[in-house]
Design a protein around this nucleic acid. Structure first.
Length: 832
RNA sequence: GCCGGCGUGGCGGAACGGUAUACGCGGCAGUCUCAAAAACUGCUCCCCUCACGGGGUUAAGGGUUCGAAUCCCUUCGCCGGCACCA
C-alpha cells in the first residue's frame, strides 16, 4: 500500500484561510487575559519579502504563538514603513509614481506575509504613506514644534549628491551615504532638526530594559558623554563697523576634558568652518586662510573618511592671538581640519604636551610644548625629545597656583577656579547631535509648516491636517524637493492673516514615521486622534521587540527619544517604548557570504516555500543555529528538516491507523514514554522562553526518535493512553514552529478544536528525570567508569559501588582516595 | 587606534564549572527494489590495538580548581560598532 506522504502544498493554504476566519490572532482591546505586545520591525515595501524577513518574523511568530498558548492576549501587529527613497528612485527609473509602486509592492508583500502562516494581527495594520497615518505623523511633529523640540536652522548639513538630499548624522557611514555609498558633502542650507540632545542624559539610562548589552553600549558610545569644563578664552578683534583702530573683545569658549592642563596651552585651534575665523584673521594672513578654508571645505569629508588618521596635520595661523583666562598668556590662533565644528565648541585649546593630536600639530609646525603634568617623581625631560604626548593624569607642574595638585584633585580645583573667576565652568559635552529630519525629496510626509512674509514660519492648524502629498510630481535632480515645482502644493495662504504664503516643500525623514508607529498599532484606525490614551496605556510598552541590530543608533534611539518627549508633553505615561529587545542574526548565502544579487547567492523565500512548504522553511531557519547568530543557508539542511516533518507525519498517521480496534491498555514501555514526554515539555518550554529555537527543535527531534524507537520495540504502545498523550504533546509543542502540519495532524488525530487554542502543556519535574541515573566515576579528574544507580543514591552508596569497580581499582592502583568529591546524582571524583 | 563579540568533528552547531562533539547535514555500509529514488537500520573526532582496552582533542600558550570548551592572563585569527570627539 502506498503511504500518503507529507505534502504541505495540500493543506498549508487551507489552514491559513481557516485561521483568518477564526480570527484568533486579532487581539481585542477588551480581552480579559493579560496582554502581550509582540512586535517586529515593520518591513519596507521593497517588492518582495526576503529571507531575512522570514528569519526575523518566524522567530517572532513562534514566540507569539507560544505566548498565546501560554494564555496571553497577544497582539502581533504588522504594517509597512512605506515612505522613503527607493520608491522615488523606482519612480524615476520606471517613469511611474512612487505611490503606485509602493502600494503594488504592499499588496504583494501582504500575500507573502500570509503565506508564512504567521499570526499577524491584521486588524491593526498601518501603512505610513497613507494620509490616515501621515496625518498623525504631521500632528506628532507639530507637538514637537510647539514645544521647541523641532526647529529650523541654517547650518552645515550632510548632503548626498547622488540622493540629492540631506542626511541625518546617523545615516552617514564612514563619510558616505548609508544608502548609496556616495561620499557626503557639507552644505549650508535651512533644515529642520529634532532636539534629541535634550534627552542625551536620559537616553543613557537603560534601567529596567532587557536589551542586548551590545546595543546599549552602541547607543551609549553614540551619545558619547564626556565630562570636563568649558573655558572661555578671549581675543581682540577689529570692531565690525570697521572704525579705524577700534577693537572689540570676543569670547572663544572651548570644551576640554582636561582643564587641569590649562597652563600647558601653547596655541589655540579653530575648526575651518568656525564663524569667527574671518574676523580673527589679520590682513596679511587673509589669503592663506581663505585658501585653507576653501581646501578644507572641499576635501574635508573625503579626507576625514580616509582610513589613515595619522596623516600629517595641516593648518594655518590666523595672525591673531587669544588670552588664556587662567594664566593670562597670549597664544596664537590657528585653524586646522583636525578640529571639527560639529563637536564641542568647534575650538580646542592646544596642549601639545598632554594630547596626542595637539602634540602632532605642534611637531608639524614647530610650536612650543610645555609640560604641566608629571607622573610621580620622574625627572622632567625636554618635551622636544618625547615620542608622544603624556596623557596620563598626574601631579601639576609649571601651573602657577596649582603646582603640586595631585591627579584626583587637579581637575576639580581648576574648575573651581574657573567658576570663581567667571571664565568657565564644569561642563558635560555629548557627541550626539540634533537629529536632522528634513529631506529634499517627494516621497515622505510633508512638513506641516507654512511660510508667510509677515508671520514667518506658521504651523498648519491641526484641524487642517493632513497636508496631502500631491498625486503626481516631476522628478528632476535639482537638489530641491519636487514639491517645489508643484504649484498647487507650494502656494497657499497664511493661516494667521490669509495672505499669500508658501508651504515647506521638504518632507520628513522616514525615521520619524517609524519613531511612533508602535503607538498607532494600539489604536490604528482612530480618525479623531493619533491614539487613544487608554488604548495605548492598555498595550504599551512593547513587551518583546524583535528586529535587526542595524537600527541600534537609528530607529531604536529615535523611538526612545520620541517616547520620552511625548511623555514630557503629557501624552504618554511611560518612558521606554520597548521593554525587551532581541536582535536576530543574519541569514547568509550558501557560500557563507552576505546575500547579494551580484554574488548570485540569494535564496528567494517564495521558491523554497513552494518546494518544501512554509513549515519546513520556518523550522529550517530556526534550526540553522542560535537565533541571534543567523548563519549560512544550506540546501541540504532544509532537506533534513523537511525529512523530520515527514517523519512526524508518518508517526502520527501510522498511529491513527494502528490504534483502530485494540482496547486501551497501559504497557510497560509507556512509563519511559511518559518520562520522555515530560522531559521534552521542560526542554522545549525553556528553549522557547529564551528564543533558543534551534535546541528546541533538536529536543523535538529527539522526542520523535524516542517515540519511534519505543513503538518499534513495543508495538502495543499505540493502545497505551500515554502514547496518545505523547502524540498530542508532540503536535502541541511543534505548533508554534510548524503551525500547519501540527494543525493538520491534530485534526487527523481526531481533535476538533485548533491545536493553536490548546493550553501549553505542563510538566512534572519529578518525571523529567530517568528512573535510573548515570553516575560518572572519575579518578583524579579522569573518567574511569560509569554506574547506573537510583536517583536518590547517597554518597556512601556511590562510593562503595565505585570502589567495587575493577576499572576504578585499576586506576587507583591500590591507593586509598585521599579526597572524594561527590556531585549528587551526577559524579564522583576520587582523588588519590 | 578605541569599544564589544566570537574561535568546538568534513559542515551547521550542542554542552547550570562535572561523561565534549546532543540534534541535523555530509560520508560509508546494509534492508527494500529488476534497478533507481524515497523510506528505514547501523557506523562515522584523531592516534595505538584484530579485539578488549588505552591515550589525545574545544585557535595557541600559561594560570585558578578535585575537575575548565566554560573562569583569569598573554598571543594569534575572524566578525560588528566607533573613529583626529578635544
Amino acid at each position: 500500500m502506498a503511504r500518503v506522504r507529507y505534502q504541505p502544498g495540500e493543506f498549508e493554504e487551507k489552514w491559513q484561510a481557516r485561521w483568518a476566519a477564526m480570527g484568533d490572532t486579532t487581539a481585542r482591546d477588551d480581552d480579559p487575559r493579560p496582554k502581550y505586545y509582540n512586535l517586529v520591525m515593520f518591513p519596507y515595501p521593497s517588492g518582495d519579502l526576503h529571507i531575512g524577513h522570514w528569519y526575523n518574523y518566524t522567530g517572532a511568530d513562534i514566540f507569539g504563538r507560544y505566548m498565546r498558548m501560554r494564555g496571553y492576549n497577544v497582539t502581533q501587529p504588522i504594517g509597512f514603513d512605506a515612505f522613503g527613497l527607493p520608491a522615488e528612485n523606482a519612480a524615476i527609473k520606471r517613469n511611474i509614481q512612487p505611490r503606485a509602486w509602493t502600494l503594488a509592492n504592499i499588496d504583494n508583500m501582504r500575500a507573502q506575509l500570509r503565506r508564512m502562516g504567521a499570526g499577524w494581527d491584521w486588524s491593526r495594520e498601518v501603512v505610513t504613506c497613507l494620509p490616515d497615518y501621515y496625518r498623525w505623523t504631521q500632528w506628532v511633529f507639530l507637538q514637537f514644534y510647539k514645544r521647541g523640540l523641532a526647529y529650523r536652522t541654517k547650518a552645515p548639513a550632510n548632503w548626498c549628491p547622488n540622493c540629492n538630499t540631506t542626511l541625518a548624522n546617523e545615516q552617514v557611514v564612514n563619510g558616505a551615504c548609508e544608502r548609496c555609498g556616495t561620499v557626503v558633502e557639507r552644505r549650508e542650507i535651512d533644515q529642520w532638526l529634532m532636539r534629541i540632545t535634550n534627552y542625551a542624559d536620559e537616553l543613557l539610562n537603560f534601567d529596567g530594559l532587557e536589551w542586548p548589552e551590545k546595543t546599549r553600549l552602541m547607543q551609549t558610545n553614540w551619545i558619547g558623554r564626556s565630562e570636563g569644563a568649558e573655558i572661555r578664552f578671549t581675543a581682540s578683534v577689529p570692531k565690525e563697523n570697521r572704525k579705524r583702530g577700534q577693537r572689540a573683545t570676543v569670547e572663544l569658549p572651548v570644551f576640554t576634558t582636561r582643564p587641569d592642563t590649562i597652563y600647558g596651552v601653547t596655541f589655540f585651534v579653530l575648526a575651518p568652518e568656525h564663524p569667527l575665523v574671518e574676523r580673527l584673521t589679520t590682513p596679511e594672513r587673509r589669503e592663506a586662510v581663505r585658501d585653507y578654508v576653501e581646501q578644507a571645505r572641499r576635501e574635508s569629508e573625503i579626507e576625514r573618511m580616509s582610513a589613515d588618521k595619522s596623516r600629517v596635520k595641516s593648518g594655518v595661523p590666523l595672525g591673531s592671538y587669544v588670552t588664556n583666562p587662567v594664566s593670562g598668556e597670549q597664544v596664537p590662533i590657528w585653524i586646522a581640519d583636525y578640529v571639527l565644528m560639529s563637536y564641542g565648541k568647534g575650538a580646542v585649546m592646544g596642549v601639545p604636551a598632554h594630547d596626542q593630536r595637539d602634540f602632532e600639530f605642534a611637531r608639524a609646525f614647530d610650536l612650543p610644548i610645555t609640560q604641566v603634568v608629571r607622573d610621580g617623581d620622574e625627572e622632567l625631560t625636554d618635551p622636544a625629545t618625547w615620542a608622544e604626548a603624556k596623557t596620563a593624569h598626574g601631579w601639576l607642574v609649571n601651573s602657577g597656583p596649582f603646582d603640586g595638585a595631585p591627579a584626583e584633585e587637579a581637575v576639580g580645583r581648576v574648575i573651581a577656579w574657573l567658576e570663581e573667576h567667571a571664565v568657565g565652568m564644569g561642563a558635560v559635552n555629548y557627541r550626539l547631535r540634533d537629529w536632522l529630519v528634513s529631506r529634499q525629496r517627494f516621497w515622505g510626509a510633508p512638513i506641516p509648516i507654512i511660510y508667510c512674509e509677515t508671520h514667518g514660519a506658521v504651523p498648519v492648524p491641526e484641524d487642517q491636517l493632513p497636508v496631502r502629498l500631491p498625486d503626481e510630481a516631476q522628478f528632476k535632480p535639482t537638489g530641491e524637493s519636487p514639491l517645489r515645482y508643484v504649484p498647487e502644493f507650494l502656494h497657499t495662504t497664511c493661516p494667521i492673516c490669509g495672505g499669500p504664503a508658501t508651504r515647506e516643500t521638504d518632507t520628513l525623514d522616514t525615521f520619524i514615521c517609524s519613531a511612533w508607529y508602535f503607538l498607532r498599532y494600539a489604536d490604528a484606525h482612530d480618525e479623531a486622534q493619533a491614539w487613544d490614551a487608554e488604548k495605548v496605556a492598555r498595550w504599551l510598552p512593547v513587551d518583546m521587540y524583535i528586529g535587526g541590530p542595524e537600527h541600534a543608533t537609528l530607529h531604536l534611539m529615535y523611538a526612545r527619544f520620541f517616547v520620552k518627549a511625548l511623555r514630557d508633553m503629557g501624552l504618554l505615561d511611560f518612558s521606554e517604548p520597548f521593554t525587551r529587545l532581541y536582535h536576530q542574526g543574519m541569514v547568509l548565502g550558501p557560500d557563507g557570504q552576505k546575500m547579494s544579487k551580484s554574488r548570485g547567492n540569494v535564496i528567494a523565500p517564495d521558491a523554497v516555500v513552494s518546494r518544501y512548504g512554509a513549515d519546513a522553511v520556518r523550522a529550517y531557519l530556526m534550526f540553522m543555529g542560535p537565533f541571534d547568530q543567523g548563519g549560512p543557508w544550506n540546501n541540504q539542511g532544509i532537506e533534513g528538516v523537511s525529512r523530520y516533518l515527514n517523519r512526524v507525519w508518518t508517526l502520527v498517521t501510522d498511529y491513527v491507523e494502528q490504534r483502530v480496534g485494540g482496547a486501551q491498555a497501559e504497557t510497560p514501555a509507556g512509563r519511559e514514554v511518559e518520562r520522555l514526554r515530560h522531559r521534552t515539555i521542560a526542554r522545549v518550554s525553556g528553549d522557547y522562553d529564551g528564543l533558543r529555537f534551534n535546541t528546541g527543535l533538536a529536543a523535538l527531534m529527539e522526542f520523535l526518535n524516542g517515540l519511534n524507537r519505543a513503538r518499534e520495540e513495543s508495538p502495543a504502545l499505540v493502545h497505551d493512553p500515554r502514547y496518545a498523550a505523547a502524540v498530542d504533546t508532540l503536535l502541541t509543542l511543534l505548533a508554534p514552529m510548524a503551525p500547519h502540519i501540527a494543525e493538520e495532524l491534530w485534526e487527523r488525530v481526531g481533535h476538533t478544536e485548533s491545536v493553536h487554542r490548546q493550553a501549553w502543556p505542563t510538566f512534572d519535574p519529578a518525571l523529567t528525570e530517568d528512573e535510573e541515573i548515570t553516575i560518572v566515576v572519575q579518578v583524579n579528574g579522569k573518567v574511569r567508569d560509569t554506574l547506573r544507580m537510583a536517583p536518590d543514591v547517597t554518597e556512601a552508596q556511590a562510593r562503595e559501588q565505585a570502589l567495587a569497580s575493577a576499572k576504578v581499582a585499576a586506576a587507583l592502583g591500590g591507593r586509598e582516595p585521599r579526597k572524594v568529591i561527590y556531585v549528587p546524582g551526577k559524579l564522583l571524583n576520587l582523588v588519590g
